[in-house]
Design a protein around this nucleic acid. Structure first.
Length: 723
DNA sequence: CGAAAGGCTCTTTTT
DNA sequence: GAGCCTTTCG
């Protein structure tokens, strides 16, 4: 029992033991936040004697939830199973599935992701006779999502706005709501908002949940939006045992309506809240922490925190300039290779982080070229692949035939002669009769008479009817088949394998389909209804970032956003340029710029031992070649913390970064070179040695390359061989 | 109706 | 550079 508290520092202990009433834990990076959360829950269970059934722990991502689960499992064992532990969205989906009917939610509801939302918005625009070019669906989606995150209905919205665009948005929003309701679907924002609505309209439902959850715990509180905060307040409303953990400096989701002010408001809403600060960092070296502090302290809207560490001083921050993004990638792979060969680190200790997913491609190419294994977190997302989405759409449709987005998506996949013309006609025809497309199909299939009242050609009627019959048949079978059986029947019925194999990358697509089938297998033991529903829910709410827990010892490629909450001994942040980080879309807005800075801070603080900040002088962006200035954030790192290669200053190559290295290398046999010798470099190709000079444990060699000009390297560092 | 080609735009981060 | 949309042709 005591061991739960034994491994904690005083602040952590305080946070764990403060179990009565509201608690706000402000946790700096690497301060043992997860440890505090898990130990707190364990403490509640093992010491205080709270049943796991009565504890709610909410996280922001599935990954965080799983991490917590496994750590708790180590502390309290099997009992973890009885906790309510999950993401906001997953927990809300469960609540709505069970109790949503009280506010008219179809328990068979499907969940619309962003893509589906866009489709529905396009449909809304079409119905309103608005031009999608003039009113970009993406922009509308973002505005509407934002409104929903603040619990603004379309009518609230109109009260708020007067501009023409807002008026249009309101009309689209209204229409969108009609359509999504008719489809028995909920979007991500609805999952949260509808629960809040449910709790407001049905106090007895709320009371049931309130009474159950004696303790409520929320992670990454700085990333919650208004709805989420409201939801937490509702749930904790009875016992007020609510513990939130967060760090305002790591708030990087305001674009998704996250509102840091929730942290400030927490202290207002719960004036008796106990505030605990976790300021000791266990992760990073002193220099890394100082560099990170330098970056973040330039933010004006911020509470100063006193982060400190007892860790060693460590290596200086490496600031590297390369010429192009290819060279940047090569530098990274090469450097990782060096570190690994020196035995300093394992590949799995290294991560390469970037602002935008697009940057991953060049990196991948370099890793492939060097034969260095890597794992890419969420590249082309599995669940966003066409073939996967199509099958999922079919299954959703079987579960909920009202789902019009799915219907329209697959009605002609594989092609069955139902083109745009016919579809428009179908929509119009359905609309005229005030029924959904699905119902219209049914009517069509039922009416044997081929009267001229129908606006379709005989061929089209046949195609539509054929589709309706097949779908009907599948729906009829869903009671009797488990998810995999249904999956197989579906694939068979629509001839999916043949269809896929006929297209480019057909094999890969088919393999993806089989992979999806593998996921379905996890649900085979549930009852048919439950299985399908659970399968679809997990597909909707689980991103593939989460599935990436692999133990394999390889380098991680990851966006800065996804990296939050992770840590690696060695971190490379690439694209340290104005326009990339900070992103050019955010550069002119001081508030957004501060968020970019926090993002940079998050990246740096992921590192334990070494941090490399890499940039390219010239880079291809949107097709064109651009020259970017160094990231302004680099200027906020005190120069005495930095070791840099400086192409500008000395004309030297990639490697001089290590000249200021403080600690000696693990001794290795360094090759010696003489002037005039022909050598080969991993990046620059062949060249001739100009000079060679011993320097302490290392040596410096200057090489004139055929293509790349004269470069200077440290021998231990660069990949140079005699030819 | 459907496949192919050409032209357009807009590029962030994700549950 | 990619994805989306439109146009064109069979």
């Amino acid at each position: 029992m005591k061991d739960i508290l034994a491994e904690l520092n005083p602040a952590q202990k305080e946070a764990v033991e403060a179990i009565n009433g509201p608690v706000l834990i402000l946790a700096g990076p690497g301060s043992g936040k997860t440890r505090v959360i898990t130990h707190r829950v364990a403490y509640l269970m093992r010491v205080v004697g709270i049943k796991p059934h009565n504890i709610l722990a909410v996280t922001f991502t599935n990954k965080a939830a799983r991490e917590m689960e496994s750590r708790l499992n180590a502390l309290v064992g099997e009992q973890v199973k009885n906790l309510t532990l999950g993401t906001f969205h997953a927990i809300c989906a469960r609540i709505l599935r069970r109790d949503g009917q009280a506010i008219g939610i179809d328990p068979k509801f499907v969940i619309y992701d962003d893509d589906d939302q866009i489709s529905l918005l396009k449909k809304s625009l079409q119905q309103l006779g608005l031009d999608p070019k003039q009113y970009a669906p993406r922009a509308l989606q973002s505005v509407i999502s934002n409104a929903k995150s603040q619990m603004l209905t379309p009518s609230d919205f109109s009260r708020k706005g007067r501009s023409y665009f807002e008026e249009i948005t309101q009309r689209v929003y209204e229409r969108y709501e009609k359509l999504i309701t008719a489809s028995s679907a909920l979007d991500f924002d609805d999952l949260l908002g509808k629960v809040v609505e449910l709790f407001r309209k049905s106090p007895e439902t709320l009371l049931r949940y309130q009474s159950r959850y004696l303790h409520v715990q929320v992670d990454e509180f700085q990333d919650t939006n208004l709805v989420q905060y409201e939801l937490i307040k509702q749930l904790a409303g009875k016992y007020r045992n609510i513990c939130v953990v967060g760090d305002p400096d790591q708030s990087i989701y305001s674009w998704r309506s996250a509102d840091v002010r929730n942290i400030l408001n927490f202290e207002k809403d719960f004036p008796d809240a106990k505030v605990v600060l976790l300021e000791q960092n266990y992760r990073s070296t002193k220099l890394i922490l100082e560099a990170a502090s330098g970056v973040i302290s330039a933010n004006r809207q911020r509470k100063e925190k006193g982060l400190w560490t007892e860790n060693e001083v460590g290596f200086p921050v490496s600031v590297i300039e390369t010429y192009t993004e290819q060279e940047e990638a090569q530098y990274v792979v090469n450097e990782i290779d060096n570190l690994v060969r020196r035995g300093e680190v394992k590949p799995g200790d290294c991560a390469v982080m970037y602002r935008t997913n697009a940057q991953s491609r060049v990196l991948e190419e370099a890793f492939i070229r060097y034969g260095t294994p890597y794992k890419l977190v969420a590249g082309t997302r599995f669940y966003e692949r066409r073939e996967v989405k199509d099958v999922v759409a079919y299954l959703r449709l079987i579960q909920n035939p009202l789902d019009s987005v799915s219907l329209l998506r697959i009605i002609n996949v594989p092609q069955r002669g139902i083109g745009q013309q016919s579809l428009d006609e179908l929509s119009r025809w359905a609309g005229a009769q005030g029924v959904t497309e699905y119902r219209a199909l049914q009517l069509l299939a039922e009416s044997k008479d081929t009267s001229a009242a129908l606006p379709f050609t005989a061929r089209t009627v046949k195609a539509l009817t054929g589709f309706a019959v097949m779908l009907e048949n599948l729906i009829g079978k869903k009671q009797d088949l488990n998810t995999v059986e249904l999956f197989d029947l579906l694939i068979e019925n629509i001839g999916y394998k043949k269809y896929l194999e006929a297209m480019p990358d057909g094999e890969e697509r088919w393999e993806n389909t089989l992979e999806l089938r593998g996921v379905a297998q996890d649900y085979r033991d549930l009852s048919p209804q439950e299985g399908l529903s659970a399968f679809l829910e997990s597909v909707a709410l689980v991103s593939d970032v989460d599935s990436l827990v692999e133990k394999s010892d390889t380098v991680t490629l990851i966006t800065l956003h996804q990296a939050k909450g992770l840590e690696f001994p060695v971190v490379f942040i690439v694209g340290m340029e104005d326009g990339i980080l900070p992103h050019f879309k955010s550069i002119d807005d001081p508030t957004q710029l501060e968020e970019e800075r926090r993002l940079c801070y998050v990246g740096i603080t992921r590192a334990g031992k070494r941090i490399y900040l890499v940039r390219a002088f010239r880079r291809h962006l949107m097709g064109a070649s651009t020259v970017n200035r160094p990231s302004r954030f680099l200027r906020d790192i005190p120069s005495q913390l930095i070791a840099k290669n400086s192409t500008e200053e000395s004309g030297a190559g990639l490697a001089t970064a290590m000249e200021k290295r403080q600690e000696p290398l693990i001794p290795v046999d360094l090759p010696e070179f003489k002037a005039g010798e022909h050598v080969k470099h991993g990046v620059f190709g062949e060249g001739v040695v100009v000079s060679y000079q011993k320097k302490g444990h290392d040596a410096e060699v200057t090489v004139a390359f055929e293509g790349a000009g004269v470069k200077r390297f440290l021998v231990s560092f660069a990949k140079i061989e005699r030819v």
